[in-house]
Design a protein around this nucleic acid. Structure first.
Lengths: 228, 228
DNA sequence: AGATTAGTGACAGCCACTGACAATTGACAA
DNA sequence: TTGTCAATTGTCAGTGGCTGTCACTAATCT
């Protein structure tokens, strides 16, 4: 459960890049159904709201039974967090790929920016990037989705803290990696919230906002910012 | 089915609130029922687990109908977060009471420690402090409860960020209060998690752990903690 | 006391989710 | 082409959280 949830169930040895060996009609159908469910769900969630959309609505929009929906997604919440999960796993990989020389906070920052470089391509496979970005507004304004989002965020932090600890050759019990990662995550969540509350919630705005908040980190903690 | 938590077992303490007349039989009964539901719920949650306990179980343990349970608590989740909410509101009040001269991080830290000073008294009205503290292990190990807990934590952060901004006479748009509070909250959540994973999860241990992690904050962010 | 009001239980119903079973359909070999 | 096997699906029934309604009873008010 630590990594991306690839839809591939059976590991076909044929999947080398060669001549696009037909995935098989069955697999193709499954992929189409899954994608149709995902897209219909996100469309309905953004149009009518998460709570106002029933699983039956989603299934009906695709023309399958409710039971089939639950064979593709473990829960209504999962279909809503599908794209976010993908983005998060890309961030984790980017952290893993950072050279070991960097200071932890620098590495996290660069990994984040870097993961956003390729996010359009990665998410684009699933759904339009614009839809994904706008969906963060739904997440932030829907208690159930926000709660799930925050829980995933802490799981992410745990994983990344382990990576940082390994990078720095520290004892797993050392608190410092967890602290740094938690602080970084805290800033991310603040920016995410501010950003999603804004009207123009595009990637460039998120980038700029996050950069400026990360810059504020040191001064906000050390200085005694007296008013006027 | 175990012990039936009779509603009449409570030791009635006369409220010192001025103004209105005696609590009244009706009010007293309501209060006792609510407390009985709360205690039965927490007992069952810690014994069997949150997911394994149905609302019917809780209602049956107190001898009321399921419908009555939902007249006292909006959801199964609310009864589980009842004590935490109380503790959190005490923390907020402690922050409000800090003298305006202190640096924000200092004020938050002192407010936290101070709110823990009086927490036994405050929570004790509802249930034994020990039960409350042990329940954090249930929260941390139950996805649904953890998610709800984290969402409340962010709401708390918003409120406290507003207080800090007002304290410092800053523009509500200034990002620094939010950053400081988010960082403080991040450390709190890390310590909470580590603490609850430990066997001796008492108040003194939480105090010590939090203090030590807050001390780690500056060095963890500034130094390039190269391995030994 | 009688009238009013509030708390309660019983019942019906919605929605997320799951297990079981049968019908369908693609995959593959003969 | 056809028959067999396994995967996919729909239907049905059931559980649990949660809500609306309604009648009944007990507490408060006049």
């Amino acid at each position: 459960m630590g990594t991306v949830e690839t839809v591939e169930t059976a590991t076909e040895t044929e999947s080398v890049e060669g001549g696009a060996s037909s995935p098989g009609l069955r697999e193709r159908k499954k992929r189409r159904t899954r994608q149709a469910l995902l897209r219909a769900a996100l469309r309905l969630f953004t149009e009518r709201g998460y709570e106002e959309t029933t699983v039956d609505d989603i299934a009906a929009a695709v023309g399958v039974s409710q039971r089939t929906f639950f064979r593709y997604f473990a829960s209504k919440e999962e279909v809503a967090s599908c794209a976010s999960r993908l983005a998060e796993s890309h961030f984790v990989e980017a952290v893993r790929a950072r050279p070991p020389g960097e200071a932890p906070l620098d590495a996290l920052r660069r990994a984040l920016m870097q993961s956003w470089d390729g996010i359009g391509e990665a998410i684009g496979q699933l759904l339009p990037l614009e839809v994904h970005l706008r969906f963060y507004q739904v997440i932030e304004s829907t208690p159930a989705l926000l709660a799930a989002h925050l829980r995933r965020a802490t799981e992410l932090e745990e994983e990344i803290a382990r990576i940082v600890a390994a990078r720095e050759g520290l004892d797993p019990a050392d608190p410092r990696p967890r602290v740094v990662v938690a602080v970084f995550g805290a800033v991310m969540r603040v920016t995410e919230r501010i950003w999603s509350a804004n009207a123009d919630a595009d990637l460039a705005a998120l980038r700029a906002l996050t950069a400026s908040y990360l810059d504020q980190l040191q001064p906000a903690l050390t200085e005694t910012w007296r008013t006027t």
